[in-house]
Design a binder for these strands. Structure first.
Length: 110
DNA sequence: GATCAGGCTCTAA
DNA sequence: ATTAGAGCCTGAT
């Protein structure tokens, strides 16, 4: 890891970008990493989001993988994918575990 | 410091 | 469009 930035700082930069994703939109891990100035750290984004506090107001569910699919398999009390449920609640069309990035990806086409 | 695993991504079938 | 393999970087043994 770089000497000029603590891991906590990297996490902060990542979360700062994730917090900017607008309601009803999604972004990929790689996209987040890139926007945070950490182009190769897509997996770190996943790591950071996984270790978030549940009280956090970070919209972690708006982050999906590059294929437009949900990587997280965590389920809620209904046996449904939590991330999928949250996205649907925001009006994001999730078919199976896949999302139409052309339509819902943040900053896609402006 | 070596080794393993992870909410990834790119490329090739 | 879906599946495999290789590459990449960090955090935890």
């Amino acid at each position: 890891m770089p000497q000029n930035a603590s891991s906590d700082e990297l996490a902060r930069q990542i979360l700062q970008v994730v917090a900017l994703i607008p309601y009803g939109k999604v972004a990929s891990y790689g996209q987040i990493a890139k926007m945070a100035g950490l182009p190769k750290h897509a997996r770190l984004v996943g790591y950071v989001l996984k270790h978030l506090d549940q009280a956090s107001e970070i919209p972690w569910h708006r982050v999906i993988n590059s294929q437009g699919k949900i990587s997280l398999s965590k389920l809620d009390g209904q046996g449904e994918n939590i991330q999928r449920t949250k996205l649907l609640a925001e009006g994001v069309m999730v078919i199976g575990d896949k999302i139409n990035l052309k339509q819902y990806q943040w900053m896609n086409g402006g």
